[in-house]
């Protein structure tokens, strides 16, 4: 029954202190999003220890600020906005801010016409997945985030633009560059 509730409904129930189900609804919410949140942070920061700390901090912020959540807002948009702020703080601390904001458009970023086809078997899928992740790690942070938010968090370009506080067209461009590079990386699997 509770499993059928939306993220926003779960969050609204969780924020009610006297609700007997609020621990249960949090567990459901956590199970739904723990993978995407963790991957987003880990892929954004490329450091296991920092990623674990930031992931924990993200959920603690969600728990402690549950009363501030507006149920008219999408939970994922709210949560990824918090995550991104934490990442920016971390980048500032480690002096990697330029890396986060700088987008270098090289010859590699030129659009390619190749299309991706589904892997023929499980082995091929594993190989392609590995290649994708390796390519993703090499992408500039903004492009990487745009790709992760689009494919792992199932967010639209508009929602990503809201989270990253960037113009819609810029985010769209970042995403296209990310996809283009991944396509080039996976080209030999096609």
């Amino acid at each position: 029954m509770l499993d059928q509730l939306s993220d926003e409904q779960l969050m609204a129930t969780f924020s009610q202190a006297d609700d007997v189900n609020n621990q249960r609804v949090f567990e459901i919410l956590y199970q739904r999003h723990k993978g995407p949140f963790f991957r987003f942070i880990k892929k954004s920061i490329n450091n296991d220890q920092d990623a674990h700390e930031l992931y924990q901090e993200l959920w603690f912020k969600i728990i402690n600020n549950k009363g501030k959540f507006n149920s008219e807002q999408k939970f994922t948009t709210w949560a990824y906005t918090i995550a991104r702020r934490l990442l920016i703080d971390q980048f500032r601390k480690t002096g990697r801010m330029a890396e986060l904001t700088g987008i270098k458009t090289t010859a590699d970023d030129e659009l390619v016409n190749t299309s991706i086809t589904a892997p023929e078997n499980e082995f091929a899928a594993k190989q392609m997945s590995k290649q994708l992740h390796q390519t993703l790690d090499k992408l500039p942070p903004e492009q990487r985030q745009a790709f992760l938010l689009k494919h792992d968090a199932d967010l639209s370009i508009k929602e990503i633009a809201t989270i990253t506080q960037q113009p819609h067209e810029k985010v769209k461009s970042q995403y296209r560059y990310a996809v283009n590079k991944i396509k080039l990386a996976l080209e030999h699997f096609i």
Binding site: K34, G35, F38, K42, H52, A125, S129, L132, H133, F147
Partner: peptide, 9 residues
């Protein structure tokens, strides 16, 4: 492909 690794905390 992205979710295939299914990395979890």
């Amino acid at each position: 492909l992205l979710r295939d690794a299914n990395e979890q905390p």
